[in-house]
């Protein structure tokens, strides 16, 4: 009996994909939390810079890492 015949009839994501999704998720959540925090500093240049520089960078890295993780 081959391996494919014994495998359960349930789709599974590869463990390395799951790990990458978690990493991308952490990066995105960090970026989103920073962006949320800057909403309390809308009238200050530092808020704008933190939003675009730090929050934006984390979001970009998180999104790119996610897209990379789903490429077969």
């Amino acid at each position: 009996m081959s391996a494919t015949e014994t495998a359960p009839n349930v789709e599974r994501t590869a463990p390395n994909v799951e790990r990458r999704l978690r990493v991308a998720g952490v990066l995105l959540i960090l970026g989103l939390l920073i962006e949320g925090a800057t909403l309390f500093a809308l009238d200050r240049p530092v808020g704008f810079l933190t939003f675009a520089g730090l929050g934006g960078a984390l979001l970009v890295v998180g999104i790119v890492y996610y897209l990379w993780s789903i490429v077969p």
């Binding site: 994909v17 999704l21 998720g25 959540i29």
Partner: peptide, 11 residues
Amino acid sequence: VGLIALRPGLT
């Protein structure tokens, strides 16, 4: 994002 990160099997 938190839901997917905690349960990546959903994907």
